[in-house]
Structures are given as structure tokens and as C-alpha cells.
Simulated assay, not measured.
Amino acid sequence: MSDQDTGARILIVDDNTKNIQVLGTMLREEGYQLNVAQNGVAALKVVETVLPDLILLDVNMPEMDGYETCERLKAADRTRGIPVIFLTARTDTDDIVRGLDLGAVDYLSKPCNRRELLVRVRTHVALRAHEKEAERRAEEAIAERDRNLKWALLGKATPAFVDDYAEDARRIRAQAEWLTRGLDDDDPNKTRAATIERLVEAHLTRLIEIADITQEEMGLELGALDLPNIVDQFVRTWTLEQTPGTEVTIDTDVRYTGAIRADRGRLTNAWRKLVDYAAQLQRESDPGTTPAIQILTYDDNDAIYVGIQSPDPGITAEWREGLFDAEHEHEGEDPKRALDLYYAKRVVTDHAGQLAYRFRQGKSLFAMKFAKP
């Protein structure tokens, strides 16, 4: 046994207890970790929580046979890449071809020769390990390039430059989509193409975020704007653009009814990012409910205040440190959310204003302060 096999996990699916015992003994002696299931239904439940490196699958089983089990495994993104070896007493060529057509990587007849079984198991476990390592390195490489690109462009690149870079990514995505459509569902390359497509999509999303952040290169288009009207149109637009699963209820408390001198597009874009952030805080604290956000406006003698408020448990003091920094990192938080807050703070600062986070009376408040025109 090679070192790379140690610790690999194998799922044995067979309704015959004796077969499971025999296979289990052979594989444990080689250092493999095991999970077992006695029919296809049980096997599908196992892979919901544990992803094996290889599945040894019997054909004739109650409730769900091996063919249907394999078909379902290959139809799901989560389990499509797991290699499946059929183990069965059937030796008819049509049966073998059927199993391979469903996506199995190999087919062994019972009773299995120990040496042949272990060689094939070792081969497919090693191939799976290499494939997973290649996927991991690809994701790490793109993530590292993404980080480097973000810091290279942050506050420096023009929107036109970012657009050119994004167009290159769109071309790569289009090629990946074309490749995915041209491959059979059981072709391992289809999974790889889908992975490329997903990674490029994530890259495009980050480029769009960077494009938002670098808009200050174009300068502000300031004008005297009616604040109640801006708030009303923002809420209307938000409501129209909502999609199922991302609904947010927005209420308003408009106490300042005058004008504000601002760049309408950039200011409302900052509001959008703050509402998104506040809504996510609510979703994390109370999953399954529709977030309820309130937009407040009020004033004093010298300043105008706009607040994005939401009922939630708030965020910790540690989390608040550097909350609006572009490089802010908090365990479990999507880095994109840090960029959202950085962008909002930058917009407010460009308007000679201030943005702060407060927590009071069970509510989070992102408070923006602007000078009166």
C-alpha cells in the first residue's frame, strides 16, 4: 500500500452482510476508512454527510438497485466526481456496458480476486486524489490572483481598465459554457468545465466589485437632491428588483424633508450595499425570516443624517475593529461583504461625510452624516 492511500474513505454498498464483512476486512488491512450501506437509499443518505473517495456498489439490492443509485450519484453536483466500481455476480456484457454508461469507472465480477480488487481500488483512489488536488490548486491559484488583482486595482485602476479585464473573463466563461454543453453528463471533463465556469463567475463578481470601488476616478456628479424623493425611489427600485429567496422589507422614517448635495448614483449604490449587509446580519441571526430594514433621515442645526437600521444581535467589538477597512477579515465572513462596507465608507467620505456603526436597543445602525447644503 502506498502512503497516498492511507486514510482514503470507501463506501461499500451491498445488501449481503457477509460480502460487506469480507470486503471490509480486506480494505481495513490496507488502511482504508469505511462506510457501509445495504441498499441504494441508505447509500444516498450516507453521502449527504460523508463524501467517500470511492464507492464499491452492488447491483442487485432491495429498495434501489445499483444502477439507479449510480445514476443519482452522477446526477448530483456534490457526488458526480466520486468514482464508482460495480461489484456484482452479473457477467453479461450488456450489464457491464450499462454500468459504465451510467458513469461507473470500473466493473468487477463476484467473487472478487483480492489482488485485482485492491489494485483497482488503489488506482482509482489515487486518480481521485490527483483530481481533487488539481481542483484545489486551481481554486487557490485563482483566489490568489483575485487577491493580488484586488490590491493592484483598488483605488488605482480606471473603470475602463476593469471593464477590459472583465471582458476577458467573460470570454473564458463563454468557452467553459460551450464546452460544458458539448460533453455528456457522465464525462469527467464536464465536471472540470463546470468548475472552471464557476470559478470564472466568482472572478467576474469580484471584478464588478472592484469596478464599483474605483468609480471615484470619474469624480462626483454633485447636485442638490430632494432626500425624501431619493429614499422613496430607492425603496421602489429595491422592491421591483427583488428575486425569490432574497426578499427584504424596507420601511422608512423620513424626518428630514429638505435637500442633500450628493452624487445620486454613488450615494444610492452605497445604501444598497449597507442594506444588503444589514439584511445578511438578520438572515444569519434568524434564518428563514424575511429581513426588515428601516431607512431613517433626520437633521440637526448643521448636519443631515441617513441611517440604515435593522433588528439583530449586533456584531462583536472585535468584529467592529476596522469594520470599514478593505482588508477587514472576520472568521466566517465573505470577503465581498468587507468590500461592500469599504465602498460605502468611501462614498460617504468622498461626500465629506462620516459613516459609523452603532448598536442600541437591539438594533444595528449604519449612520451616515452629511453637511447641510
Rank of each mutant, 00 (worst) to 15 (best):
G245K: 05
P111F: 04
I55L: 06
L204G: 02
L267R: 10
E30T: 04
R98G: 03
R206G: 09
D65H: 09
N35A: 15
R78V: 03
L179K: 07
G81C: 00
A166P: 02
D65I: 02
D340C: 12
Y342K: 11
F324Q: 07
V13W: 13
L323W: 05
H203E: 05
D164V: 14
G7R: 00
Q309Y: 06
L11K: 06
F324W: 07
H203W: 14
L240I: 09
G81W: 07
C70S: 02
V13Y: 00
T205K: 11
L57R: 05
A134C: 08
I12M: 10
I55T: 14
L220V: 08
D232V: 12
P62K: 03
A152P: 07
T195L: 15
I304N: 07
D350L: 11
T158L: 08
K336L: 15
L323E: 06
P311S: 01
D300I: 05
G362Y: 01
D77T: 15
T289F: 06
G103P: 02
E48K: 13
M1F: 14
L225N: 11
A126Y: 04
A278P: 00
T349L: 08
F161L: 15
N148Y: 15
R114P: 02
L199G: 03
A76V: 03
R136I: 11
V306E: 05
N60C: 14
D184S: 07
V347C: 08
R170G: 05
R337K: 03
H130D: 15
K369A: 04
P83V: 11
N16D: 10
I308E: 05
L149F: 15
L227F: 05
V347P: 08
W151P: 01
T297N: 07
A371S: 13
E63R: 10
N269P: 00
G81I: 06
G223F: 09
L57Y: 01
T243F: 14
D212R: 15
G332E: 04
D212Q: 08
D312M: 14
I96N: 06
G265Y: 00
A76F: 03
R283K: 12
G353L: 05
C70N: 02
G81T: 09
A143E: 11
L296M: 08
G332Y: 03
V125C: 04
E201M: 04
S109C: 14
K150I: 12
A169Y: 07
K132Q: 15
G99V: 12
L149V: 13
A367Y: 08
A37Q: 02
L220R: 02
Q280S: 04
L220I: 06
N301F: 10
A259V: 01
D65L: 09
R360F: 12
L54M: 08
L240H: 11
Y32R: 03
D325I: 04
L341I: 04
A371G: 08
D101Y: 07
H351P: 04
A138W: 10
Q215I: 03
D164A: 15
R264A: 07
R78N: 13
Y357H: 08
A89C: 02
P373Q: 09
D65Y: 06
R266P: 00
I20V: 12
D325H: 00
G155N: 01
Q38L: 04
T6P: 02
T237L: 12
T349R: 08
L225Y: 12
G81N: 12
Q309T: 09
P291F: 14
L27V: 05
E131N: 14
I250E: 00
G66Q: 05
I85Q: 09
I196W: 09
T249R: 09
